[in-house]
Design a protein around this nucleic acid. Structure first.
Lengths: 190, 190, 190, 190
DNA sequence: ACCTAACCGAGACGGTACGTCGCGTCTTCCC
DNA sequence: GGGAAGACGCGACGTACCGTCTCGGTTAGGT
């Protein structure tokens, strides 16, 4: 009944080698020094094998992001019961990542990749902003009466993550109090 | 007294022709279809004349932005006395610009350019976010008692503009109520 | 047994198109107006395809020479039994070629190419001087007793061809008796 | 009565500096690595000053040649009374010059320059071949009965020098007996 | 036990743009 | 008005990648 494909199936080894090579080169040299030829060489794979399964460099990076090959970590806010303190700690972690050696390159690369490939943009806020987890933290704060139930929570997360992205775009230096200022700005003073 | 330079000075005609050509091509075809060769041809100028004065495509676009060649307008919030209404109107204008024909291309191009060149990022928030004017609007709101004097105003602006940028990165479609939701999220419910 | 190469083999069509284009443009505009870009365009070929197989313009011209694409003819002395008359006729042919419309350009181009690429120089004396055939003519003359068997024949050929090349270098105009004078000078008076 | 030119006359210092720089760079890097910009810089002279007085690189080199800035020496045959021995010694000197470090570069450069500028070709045979002196040696040999008075002497010189140039073009290695073979070839066996 | 379609590596191909070099001209200031 | 400095429009250079294509070799179904 069903149409059967003959011949060998997709090589998992090749798929993994390509994604590994992509993540490795992305981390080492950034998105715009990433080349299809470089990936193919690094992965010991023919270029056609890449093009057979991914339409573009952006899609490849999006897949790496999806499989968590670019951020081993994944930032998520703690829940100590004190929303402001938790948000400040969470933002500090992200800002420290951006400020560290090569971190701004990583962020800029992701932003560049987001420009190339729509789904990278979507993944970006999830991975960097950990939006589902962030939203959960907000919901917990609402339940605890620390946050008005009328605040649209997704937009609230966007405001925090967006401010960080904007800072990263402009490469503005971040001081120690930046996280606290941003929380005060968005949530209102304590 | 001063050490004097001999030889011809920089040609203003060439400088203007290059910036004009850059702005024209940027608007027409977007940042990543913008090429140095295309600019040189459009400006009837040698490539070397571009490289003599600008190190990269990004720097060129940054200068265009600085001279207001990319946004004749410049979004600025009105001051009717009602902060929320003014912010919603201002955000709607920006979102409409992003959503309009080719508007997302323009924004993505600017974001891409920001990745290439630091000062584009800085200029971006000023031009697109009109930060000095936005800050003035916030200060007016503080004076009117509509905003707590303890909110850091620059971070507040970053949160708004950042959220818009983040939306644009993910190419999420914007509905009519998006502006209002964002204002409620950041400022708290009315 | 043998290590096997994978991947596509060299395209004969591209090779021929490049050599054809080179010969065509060389004949039309001379060696120093010959450009790699022009050849690539004329041959409908990427520049890299030329650089992949030839290191320089000179090597390309040398290959054309080797395949007889620059002189369809190839000057060779007749053997009527009269050495002096045959040499004079042969030299007249060459001098006429040099003097004719564009002929000096061709010769200067070849000399310039010889400067660029060693093997062009070697091929030059073979093609223009037809040395193997010239040497055969000398051997025939030795057998006929018209030439001392102690004359080194290669050097004899070099003397004739070299004198012509030297004339061409200096662009000295050649009169009708030039060929006869050269024969008398080298072979001694009749 | 006569039209007087006003302003300063041609600067001899500049003229000498340019020719010196040309000769220095020619010897150091060869004709085709010689650039007008390089000469101007080396001579601490504006490019316009060069173009004001010389039409091309070739003309510049021709002038250097004319003033003896390229060959301090100038090969001339001795007159010991033995023509063959004198010619062999003379040829050996030239061949040694060609074969020595960078000597072939020098000769190739001169040939290339001859292609660019007609008078370089003419000067070349005079300087390298020392034709007037060579002709004088031949005339002495005719007087001594060592050479038939019917041999055209200019063509005879051309044959010798031309054979050397041809060898140099093809970069053929020269062995010790080469000079003797050439003399035997052209003059006939002893 | 073939057959054969789809996979794989390698890499040649026609292209586009890059950033550099050198050309010959033009422009500015100084002597 | 000659000369230094050097900016200009221009054209070619040789390189880097793009995305497509063409090879032989390798694997699995299907028959």
């Amino acid at each position: 009944m069903s149409e059967h494909r003959r011949g060998p199936v997709r090589s998992e080894a090749a798929r993994v080698a390509i994604l590994d090579a992509t993540a490795r080169l992305f981390a080492a040299r950034g998105y715009d020094h990433l080349t299809m030829e470089g990936i193919a060489a690094e992965a010991h794979v023919g270029k056609q094998t890449i093009y057979r399964w991914w339409p573009s460099k952006g899609a490849l990076v999006a897949d790496c992001l999806l499989e968590g090959r670019l951020f081993p970590e994944g930032f998520s806010p703690a829940d100590t019961g004190d929303l402001r303190a938790d948000l400040i700690a969470w933002l500090r972690g992200i800002l420290a990542f951006v400020d560290r050696e090569g971190g701004d390159t990583m962020v800029h690369s992701l932003i560049a990749a987001a420009g190339d490939h729509p789904s990278v943009g979507a993944r970006l806020s999830e991975q960097l902003g950990a939006n589902p987890l962030l939203r959960a933290r907000f919901e917990s704060a609402v339940a605890a009466g620390q946050l008005s139930p009328d605040r649209p929570l997704d937009e609230l997360g966007d405001a925090f993550v967006g401010a960080v992205v904007l800072r990263a775009l402009g490469r503005a230096p971040t001081d120690a109090a930046a996280a606290a200022r941003l929380v005060n700005a968005v949530l209102g003073p304590a």
